[in-house]
């Protein structure tokens, strides 16, 4: 799941591109930033899930 923030990053890039500005998903460059943003968001989501997994396990042991 690439989160809503990643979708937002793509939206901003796409809207700029569609309007004729040099948007990342539009007619020209800057695609690297979109890729980096996506990887960072995925990493954040992944670390959150790892932490959640650990917490759920602790709660299950306690119950």
């Amino acid at each position: 799941m690439i989160t809503a923030a990643a979708v937002g990053a793509m939206a901003a890039a796409g809207a700029a591109g569609a309007a004729g500005a040099p948007g990342a998903l539009g007619p020209s460059g800057g695609i690297g930033w979109v890729a980096v943003t996506n990887v960072l968001i995925w990493t954040g989501l992944f670390l959150y899930l790892l932490r959640l997994h650990r917490k759920v396990r602790e709660l299950e042991k306690g119950s």
């Binding site: 796409g14 591109g17 948007g23 990342a24 998903l25 539009g26 007619p27 695609i31």
Partner: peptide, 8 residues
């Protein structure tokens, strides 16, 4: 496809 839009 226009620009990089196909990557979506």
């Amino acid at each position: 496809f226009i620009g990089q839009s196909s990557r979506i």
